[in-house]
């Protein structure tokens, strides 16, 4: 998979991160998916890395020579699905109601 990525291939579609941007981060010393994430924003967009996570891991594995399963994956953060602010705010009301 990594061999097929040309420098212009988009790896993270949410944040428009190309393979060359990830290559630059690897060249600058990044060694983990989390470092790629914070340097390039790959995986920080709306889908939270659900699409690009495995591509990023493959590129890191290729650059570091480590097997993908040996990498510490970038963290998974709640919420699991998108939740609107007003839906979340309603939880506040319910919580406050329970206390009151």
């Amino acid at each position: 998979m990594a061999e097929d990525s040309t420098r212009d291939s988009t790896i993270c579609r949410c944040e428009d991160v190309t393979a060359s941007a990830i290559a630059a981060a690897l060249a600058a010393g990044a060694r983990s998916p989390t470092e790629i994430k914070v340097l390039t924003r790959a995986g920080m967009g709306a889908c939270q890395g659900r699409v690009c996570r495995y591509l990023v891991e493959a590129l890191v594995a290729e650059a570091t020579g480590l097997p993908p399963e040996a990498l510490v994956p970038a963290s998974y953060r709640p919420p699991v699905r998108l939740v609107r602010l007003d839906e979340l705010a309603r939880q506040h009301g319910e919580h406050a109601g329970k206390e009151g």
């Binding site: 939270q48 709640p78 998108l82 609107r84």
Partner: peptide, 11 residues
């Protein structure tokens, strides 16, 4: 007006 904006991550 923020009510309909989706949250993508918390940390």
């Amino acid at each position: 007006c923020l009510g309909g904006v989706p949250v993508i991550r918390s940390w």
